[in-house]
């Protein structure tokens, strides 16, 4: 984790240096490619503006993550739990992904307005599928011998199946759910920003569009930088949380000998 952060910092530093070198050598006009220094000064000068909009985008992303995760997990459980419904739910799920989320962004803004709701809906929609797909995968791949053991213990009644779901299938699928959540954390900002581009009055995506129209490319870069930070922080937070909550997945624990 610490080593990973260190490497990340080093790589970022290398990219910034490369960026500065490109600016020095090619010397583009600042409205095409501002240097790191110009970006940094935009970051400092417009800090309040950036933070206000970042807070909006962050809230959209987090709400989207919460709803997307809840819906995605519920969707996977529904597909597993209701045998007959599976045949209808699964194609519906896949069809829902065949419609590009970007294409329905204008519709969502039309239906849900320019406020946060349409952006949260975008993020939720984009998260829903990876969460459902990975959790479903985990739920379907429960170790067969565990299920056999459960059957000898409790039989095949409905209550026994529900208990097996709760005590065996779901915990066994948590590592798969966690990998779905990592993907979700990485794509959630895309949903929020696309939503803001289509129509909004606040947020980093909105700020970037405004800055672009006014040739304030340094401000755009500063917003982009914050967006990247948010995405990274989210990813690492989800990663750390899943490691803390699913410790049995970690196989580097020492195994004492008898």
């Amino acid at each position: 984790m610490i080593g990973g952060l260190f490497r990340l910092l080093l790589v970022s530093l290398g990219l910034v240096v490369l960026w500065q070198v490109v600016v020095w050598v090619a010397a583009p006009p600042p409205f095409i490619l501002p240097g790191p220094l110009a970006t940094a000064s935009a970051f400092i000068n417009r800090f309040d503006l950036l933070m206000q909009n970042a807070a909006v985008t962050l809230a959209e992303i987090l709400l989207g993550l919460v709803f997307g995760t809840l819906l995605g997990a519920a969707g996977a459980l529904a597909v597993i739990a209701f045998g007959p419904a599976r045949r209808w739910l699964l194609p519906l799920l896949i069809a829902s992904q065949a419609v590009p989320v970007f294409a329905i962004a204008p519709l969502l803004v039309l239906w849900l307005g320019y406020g946060m709701a349409s952006k949260v809906a975008m993020a939720t929609l984009i998260i829903f599928f990876p969460v459902t797909a990975s959790f479903l995968d985990g739920l379907r791949r429960t170790e067969g011998s565990w299920l056999d053991l459960a059957q000898t213990m409790a039989g095949t009644s409905t209550s026994a199946r529900l208990a097996t779901m709760r005590h065996i299938r779901i915990p066994a699928a948590l590592p798969a759910l966690a990998s779905g959540l990592r993907v979700a954390a990485a794509v959630a900002p895309i949903g929020a920003v696309v939503g803001e581009w289509v129509g909004s009055g606040a947020g980093l995506g909105y700020l970037m569009l405004q800055a672009n129209a006014r040739m304030q490319v340094d401000l755009m870069f500063a917003a982009l930088f914050i967006l990247a930070l948010i995405a990274l922080a989210l990813f690492y937070a989800v990663d750390a949380a899943s490691r803390a909550l699913i410790p049995w997945q970690d196989d580097s624990l020492p195994v004492p000998k008898e």
Partner: peptide, 9 residues
Amino acid sequence: RPKALSGGQ
């Protein structure tokens, strides 16, 4: 947890 136990345990 099982991971902290030996095969015999």
